[in-house]
Computed example of a mutant assay.
Amino acid sequence: MDNKNKTVVRSMDVLNLFINHAELTFQEIIDYSGIPKTSVYRMLRSLEEMGFLVKGEDSKYRLGLIFLKFGHLVSSRMNIRAIAYPIMQALHQEVNEAVNLIIKQNDEAIYIEKIDTHQKVRLYTAIGRRSPLYAGACSRAILSFLPDTEIDDYLDSIELTSFGRGSITDETQLRETINQARIDGYTVSHSELENHTSAIAAPIFDHQGDVIAGISVAGIEANYQGEKIQYFAEKTLEAAKKISMQLGHDG
């Protein structure tokens, strides 16, 4: 085990002590961990700087508030997947198209669930894949329902680049699609992330009314024309509403 890995493992050993102890002194950490005093001292300083631990006026160490943030994120995302999956399955059975679930992570969208059992042609989407918030129906379903100030800040911070022949690279056009999404309640994309593919997506809201995820149906572009768009949109909106309601959103 190299020194860097050893330091990481030992740091985790220190943090794990706080599973059973709400607070610990410097000496208690040494005694419980069995790690040399000088090493504990260095690790505690680093863990404090990164916000994983805080040292009180009583000289005792406690877990930092950063764990509340991570704990909330993990909990909320796992709940979304657990709540969304059966609804995604029902939607997939009904439309026979791929169904995707994404969440916002910083300035990107990340795919956290996908069902495409009945789809013969596999698409670009995969669990863990990331995409810009402006590219693709599912990502833009989140972007479109963020507060105006967040949208402005996001657009000021990025460069609109092309991924497929239908990628939106003009800010005026992008803002028009955002405005239209707010009117329709859903987003549509054609060949934005990959040529010859289309998607229709709707936002998912939490109990506070904030957009926290998006759900989409996606497939070959030829299947997303004319009346099919409205059909897929209605089914996707219905699924998004069901998930949102189970997350406490009152509509």
Rank of each mutant, 00 (worst) to 15 (best):
E23T: 08
T25W: 07
T25Y: 06
T25M: 13
F26R: 05
Q27A: 15
E28V: 02
I30A: 00
D31A: 15
S33G: 09
G34F: 06
G34V: 10
G34S: 11
K37E: 11
S39W: 06
S39R: 04
V40G: 03
Y41Q: 07
Y41S: 11
Y41L: 09
R42G: 01
M43D: 04
M43C: 04
M43R: 02
L47Y: 00
L47I: 08
L47T: 01
M50G: 06
G51P: 10
V54P: 06
V54E: 04
E57D: 13
D58A: 10
K60H: 08
K60R: 13
Y61T: 09
R62Q: 07
L63T: 06
L65F: 10
I66Y: 06
L68F: 08
L68G: 01
K69D: 10
F70G: 09
F70T: 04
H72G: 10
L73R: 09
S76R: 15
I80W: 02
A82P: 08
I83E: 03
A84S: 09
I87R: 00
Q89W: 05
Q89F: 05
V95F: 04
E97D: 09
A98L: 04
N100K: 11
N100M: 11
Q105M: 14
N106P: 12
E108N: 04
E108M: 06
A109I: 01
I110G: 01
I112G: 01
E113L: 13
K114L: 08
I115R: 00
I115Y: 00
D116M: 14
